[in-house]
Design a protein around this nucleic acid. Sequence first.
DNA 1: ATTATTCACTTGCATTTTGCAAGTCATATT
DNA 2: AATATGACTTGCAAAATGCAAGTGAATAAT
Lengths: 142, 142
Amino acid sequence: MCPRPDPIMKRRSGCPLNASVEMLGDRWSLLIIRDMMLRGSKSFNEFLHCYEGIATNILADRLKKLVGHGILETEPDPGDGRKLIYRLTEKGIDLAPVMTEMVLWAAAHEETENQALVMEMKKDRTKFLQRIRARWLHSRKK
Amino acid sequence: MCPRPDPIMKRRSGCPLNASVEMLGDRWSLLIIRDMMLRGSKSFNEFLHCYEGIATNILADRLKKLVGHGILETEPDPGDGRKLIYRLTEKGIDLAPVMTEMVLWAAAHEETENQALVMEMKKDRTKFLQRIRARWLHSRKK
DNA sequence: ATTATTCACTTGCATTTTGCAAGTCATATT
DNA sequence: AATATGACTTGCAAAATGCAAGTGAATAAT
């Protein structure tokens, strides 16, 4: 009885950076989260049409893992029985600072596009993060 | 003549987050950088004995890629001809804020160890980053 | 009411990456 | 001269990735 839902998920180490890397250290997870935060993507098809072009099987796998890690949660679309709505959890939206630092780092050291976004982040990091969180809060209240 | 050394390295997209993910989005790169920043590791053997246990071929590959991305640089050890000294470049040490946010995120949402480090980061993020950079500056002046 | 389309996935299969064990080879140490 | 160390390669099995082509339920069009 009462089988603990997540007894000891074994990690390579207890280091917090390692925990992050095991959840997010691949070529797609953070891009999915980016599309949710910045473009408001929330369905399989919207993720599928991200600029980088993820394959359907990989996307399905990553969504499953992100939900499993409590970074995303799902809800059936009330207006369309085929659709599933994906949303960032609190834990998920808390990745905004990570994403911001990664964007600013690359923008500072590589040739990248979307300078408008970078400028907005650089100008006032705190305000930018507040805006992302505010949009998220707004989107989740029915 | 004059073959441009890095003419157009093609990425999946020009998004700065994608650039970061393509350089750092795997299960080892950031752990190597962590060991350099926090433990002062600087040789192949030191990286090899990180707690998570990386294999020699993967380590060699990651070091090569990190050097290729300008995140690390090497220098032969003046005292021992077998040894190579790896050091973080300016671009590499600039990853400190990324690492910090990833650590704080995992510490906030997962069960992790090394609470001393986490506390130090949380207490005063700016001061923590300054200390890391100061140590790095000190280690690189001969 | 039937047909076509959309949506969120699976499945099969080839390619690539990862991981382990065992070399290799140039210094260093004894 | 013999042994050990440091930084890698190499071979090979297993896992992850990527592409194309399904599948099956729910909706939209005719």
